[in-house]
Each structure stands twice: as structure tokens, then as C-alpha cells.
């Protein structure tokens, strides 16, 4: 039988007389981290969740030409409970951010976020709009940012590769989701006279007590 050489199989194991012949070349020795991450990075289930224009390119990425299935990522789940990855594909508005945060909180760990395009990254061309959040990372942590308005499908694929690289580097020993302690839940922002980030409530209260009138009179 020809000798398939495999770097993962240790020399020691190959030459150990106690190992039966049929097991040689069939056993891989690796670390648990590597095995675990190898499985995870090739079976990401993104959430079926589109916000705006970028969602169209996200759908195009999943379609036949760009073929997301090559990465093992094609199984889009509409329920956040079954999803590993949130692709924030489009403009995040103040009216939508409570739902986005809630969806993020409902996703089980380990969970990842890709901010797709200029709007999700920083507000994009609509940043100055009164109903636009200046980037989804004001509320939820983002793993990979992609530029573009909208990013091409290739750019989205690139972000997947980048995220795979990030997953490869994670170790079971120090990932947050196996630690003891409280779950990392982002407080859902509220819609009052404007969007209220509950984490900053005290600060907002203090500033509002001394703020200038929000509606300026027109200067004639």
C-alpha cells in the first residue's frame, strides 16, 4: 500500500508497534481546539436577516454564481435561536436597533457579527440622518467589518474567510461563553423622544438637565 504522508499523524504513532496496521494512516492526532474550531468554522449558520441594499448582495452571494455553500455557510436560519452569525446587511435605523439587539441577545453563544457595508459599519451615506444609528457597533460587538456600498459578493466571501481565521485562533480555554458568571446581554435600547441607550441613561439624564433647547428657532 502506498504511504500517504500526513503531517498531522505523528511519527511516533506511525512507528509504534502496538498500533495495529489498519489504524495507521487512519488516525489523526490534533488538539481539541483545532478539531472544535475546524468543525465550527465550516458550519456557520447565518441568520436570515436582511436590512437594506446590502441584503440584496448577501442573497446574490448565496446564489449560484458565488455559491456560499462552498464554505458550509449556506444554511440560513430565520430564527436567532438557531443562528451562529448575524450579518448586519444594511442601514441600522433607530427604529430597528431595539429589534437587532434583541435578536442578538437571543442568539446562543458562540455568536459572531459581520457589519456588512458602510451603513452597518458607521452609518454610511445616511449617517447624518436623524433616524440612523452611526454603526451597529454602538450597540453590539462586531467581529468583521466590510467596506463597500454595497460590498460585492466577493467582499462578503472575504469577510467569511476573515471570520474563519478568527475562529481558528480561538481557544476553548479562554472563550467567554464557557466561563462562569453572568451572560453577556446587551440592554435593549428604548425609543423615547429619541433613541435611548440604557447603558448611558445616567449620563443622558445629567446632560439633558443642562442641555440647550433641542429645537432652535430659525435665524431670520
Amino acid at each position: 500500500m502506498a504511504e500517504p504522508t500526513n503531517a498531522n499523524v505523528s511519527e511516533e504513532f506511525q512507528n509504534d508497534p502496538r498500533v495495529p496496521d489498519e489504524l495507521r494512516n487512519n488516525v489523526f492526532i490534533t488538539s481539541l481546539d483545532k478539531l472544535y474550531n475546524w468543525g465550527r468554522k465550516r458550519s456557520m449558520w447565518p441568520m436570515l436577516f436582511g436590512l437594506a441594499c446590502c441584503a440584496i448582495e448577501m442573497i446574490a452571494t448565496a446564489a449560484s454564481r458565488h455559491d456560499l455553500a462552498r464554505f458550509g455557510w449556506e444554511l440560513m436560519r430565520a430564527s436567532p435561536r438557531q443562528a451562529d452569525l448575524m450579518i448586519v446587511s444594511g442601514t441600522v435605523t433607530k427604529k430597528m436597533i431595539p429589534q437587532i439587539v434583541r435578536l442578538y441577545n437571543q442568539m446562543p453563544e458562540p455568536r459572531y457579527v459581520i457589519a456588512m457595508g458602510a451603513c452597518a459599519t458607521a452609518g454610511g451615506p445616511f449617517k447624518e440622518g436623524y433616524n440612523v444609528v452611526s454603526g451597529v457597533d454602538k450597540f453590539i460587538p462586531v467581529d468583521v467589518y466590510i467596506t463597500g456600498c454595497p460590498p460585492r459578493p466577493e467582499a462578503l466571501l472575504h469577510s467569511f474567510i476573515k471570520l474563519q481565521e478568527k475562529i481558528e485562533k480561538q481557544s476553548l480555554r479562554n472563550v467567554p461563553w464557557y466561563r462562569q458568571g453572568e451572560e453577556d446581554v446587551v440592554p435593549v435600547p428604548a425609543l423615547g423622544p429619541d433613541l435611548v441607550d440604557m447603558r448611558r441613561a445616567q449620563e443622558i439624564k445629567e446632560k439633558a438637565a443642562q442641555a440647550a433647547p433641542a429645537l432652535e428657532q430659525p435665524t431670520a
Binding site: 427604529k95 452609518g123 449617517k127 447624518e128 436623524y130 440612523v132 444609528v133 452611526s134 454602538k138 428604548a190 425609543l191 423615547g192 423622544p193 429619541d194 433613541l195 435611548v196 441607550d197 440604557m198 448611558r200 441613561a201 445616567q202 443622558i204 439624564k205 446632560k207 439633558a208 438637565a209 442641555a211 440647550a212 433647547p213 433641542a214
Partner: peptide
């Protein structure tokens, strides 16, 4: 950055005296 120019450090504005710890949010 636009955030650096505004008092709230973000794309928000509140009426004077607004109390985020005690308001009725019913969008």
C-alpha cells in the same frame, strides 16, 4: 467625526430635562 461635534457623542438629541430613567416608551 460627527460624534465629536455633538454634546451627546452620538446621533441623538433629547428635549431639555429628559429623564431616561423614568419615561414612558410606547413606540
Amino acid at each position: 467625526l460627527a460624534e465629536e461635534r455633538v454634546p451627546w457623542g452620538d446621533n441623538v438629541n433629547y428635549p431639555p430635562g429628559f429623564d431616561p430613567l423614568n419615561f414612558n416608551s410606547d413606540p
